[in-house]
Amino acid sequence: MAYLLGIFVAIVAFWMGNSGHYKPLMLGFAALSVGLTLLLSARLKIIDREGAPYVRFVGFATYYPWLFWEIVKSNVVVIKACLRADLDINPALVKVKTTCKTDLAKVTFANSITLTPGTVTVEIDGDKLLVHGLYEANTVPEAFEEMDRRCARAADPSEKAS
């Protein structure tokens, strides 16, 4: 029931933010569409912990600013590589072991690696990730340890309760 309420609040907030019309007719349509969406998500059986991830807001709120700074730093590297007159890149393929346990933490970790320019997650197999990097020096497995630790801290703690 709490999850249903969470999804309801999120959908209503999304509608309010995107519409801008608050006449009674429009609000009626809004109620109709919100009800239909809730019905569809109930039929899809996605009203669960993953559907209303409010518990993780605090963790992600501290994780994403850090990730933003990492993205800025690696952007500079890749932009320099793009604009250099003669191309000198050194692509490498490395295996990275992760300490993340839940699926959400692994997805966050892999998505963060992919989001950072210069490194792309090619494959996930259990707790090993295959990462392709633009520079061999930047893609040693040790370079991802801090990101891994922060991901585990941001997304994993809730699994202690279950």
Binding site: I71, V78, I79, C82, P117, G118, V122, H132, L134
Partner: peptide, 15 residues
């Protein structure tokens, strides 16, 4: 090659 092009395309997607 394709994988390195992927890195260049991710500049567009992020910054």
């Amino acid at each position: 090659d394709f994988y390195t092009r992927l890195h260049a395309a991710s500049i567009t997607d992020t910054s």
